[in-house]
Write a protein that binds this DNA or RNA. Structure first.
Lengths: 118, 118
DNA sequence: CCAATTGTTCAATAACTTTTGAACTAAGGA
DNA sequence: TCCTTAGTTCAAAAGTTATTGAACAATTGG
């Protein structure tokens, strides 16, 4: 761990809800949930926002206690704080993710067209 | 019904989360959940905010599809749209309310001292 | 009809949040 | 060492949300 994270009991319900109430961040969380276990770095999310803006949104998620970011070399490994969230707010994350999964309007991660090399 | 409400399938997850991510509104929802069935008018919430500001927050809840407001005489009857929310986002409302119930930092409704008449 | 009660609307301001680009740091590979 | 990759920080600009007070509307009771 490297950057500042709240402890489990510092996690605040209204802040978590507000942080999840943004389509970009909700997409990130949905994607992390889908790929749970797979370590994720920021660049995965570059089709959602610019690098700078991503850094901002990922910091919001981290500061709210929704995700954990650890520095590994020049990357960050981003994971969902599922156990802490489940302990603090039982059922919340699951229902949010289930609802987000069915949301056609949320921006998708990993959908950006890949350049076919000439 | 009198004021504009979204239909059940117009209710958007990020908007609902953002709307619930405000302590004043979360308190209102928690109180409505506690007193479910009991018709509620705006003045119940006057210890949370000014009359004007309450009107604003209650409109946000209504526009997001979280509550329903019907005009009855000079009052509004405010209710939670529990069935619509449960259908759209199963488990979400319950987990939010359960978490809000355990939140000591949320402002309480119905706590303002009542004047003892001289 | 008049006054009180209940709530809305409007315009202004204050307070935040999001987005941006340029400059920066730190690690790793050639 | 130098270059690249990965991400942060900073300050500015843009956009949004919250709060306020004054004025308004609608209903009800006297």
């Amino acid at each position: 761990m490297s950057l500042p994270h709240p402890t489990a009991d510092q996690i605040s319900l209204p802040i978590v809800l507000a942080v999840l109430g943004d389509p970009t961040r909700l997409s990130i969380v949905r994607y992390l949930a889908r790929k749970e276990g797979v370590p994720m770095n920021c660049s995965k999310f570059l089709d959602l926002a610019s690098k700078t803006n991503l850094s901002y949104h990922l910091a919001k998620l981290r500061e709210a206690g929704v995700t954990r970011s650890e520095a590994v070399g020049t990357s960050r490994l981003i994971t969902l704080r599922r156990d802490d969230l489940d302990r603090r707010f039982p059922g919340l994350l699951d229902s949010v993710i289930a609802a987000a999964d069915g949301d056609k309007d949320l921006p998708a991660v990993g959908t950006a067209e890949v350049e076919v090399s000439a």
